[in-house]
Write a protein that binds this DNA or RNA. Structure first.
Length: 175
DNA sequence: CCCTGATTCGC
DNA sequence: GCGAATCAGG
């Protein structure tokens, strides 16, 4: 794939929206996150604020040639079966009779949200939004090994009522 | 380990 | 110009 005007425009939009390079790469398709980052720099629209990292330490990467001409080549791993196996019966969501529309949506920074294309085995798969519309995504935060939810709000949703109440308190204090 | 963006440099 | 490899950091 090449950087057509359309793809560049989409890149600019998504980048300014706060999506990560890998997420943008997933949306565009046909490119890696490295390609996205490289393009972002060439376009001169890097520095999305944040990260005022120490200027004292400058890059020094890649001390020499890529060693040999043999092509490494990686097949690019696929998300694989996120639907069926992701949500085990053990973690079935507790009944949410309480009037709590979707507070989770507001808690997940856009930059961390994931689409079905950007989910991995270690991303939180808590669904947010309406699957029938474009306003649908997954939490996308990092999850613990073996569980489909992250250690934040989504964990609470998966827990029994008693534990939920306790953890809500903990998180509230931490915030 | 997962992830993030930043940089270099062969192509 | 492109982007893999590599780096530094969360």
């Amino acid at each position: 794939m090449s950087w057509t005007n359309e793809r560049v425009e989409l890149l600019k939009k998504l980048w300014s929206d706060g999506l990560s390079a890998s997420q943008i790469a997933g949306e565009l398709g046909g490119v890696t996150r490295n390609a996205v980052i490289g393009k972002v720099h060439r376009l001169g629209l890097s520095g999305r604020a944040k990260t005022a990292s120490n200027p004292s330490k400058q890059r020094r990467a890649r001390p020499n040639a890529p060693a040999g001409t043999s092509a490494p080549k990686k097949p690019a791993a696929q998300p694989q079966s996120i639907g069926a196996t992701a949500l085990k019966a053990d973690y079935a969501p507790a009944p949410v009779a309480e009037a709590k529309p979707e507070p989770i949506a507001e808690l997940v920074p856009i930059s961390q949200r994931a689409t079905i294309l950007t989910l991995t085995e270690r991303t939180c798969k808590w669904p947010i939004g309406d699957p029938a519309t474009d306003d649908f995504y997954f939490c996308g935060r990092q999850s613990d090994a073996g569980v489909p939810y992250c250690a934040h709000h989504c964990k609470i949703a998966y827990q029994p009522v008693a534990d939920r109440r306790r953890d809500r308190k903990v998180i509230a204090q931490a915030s």
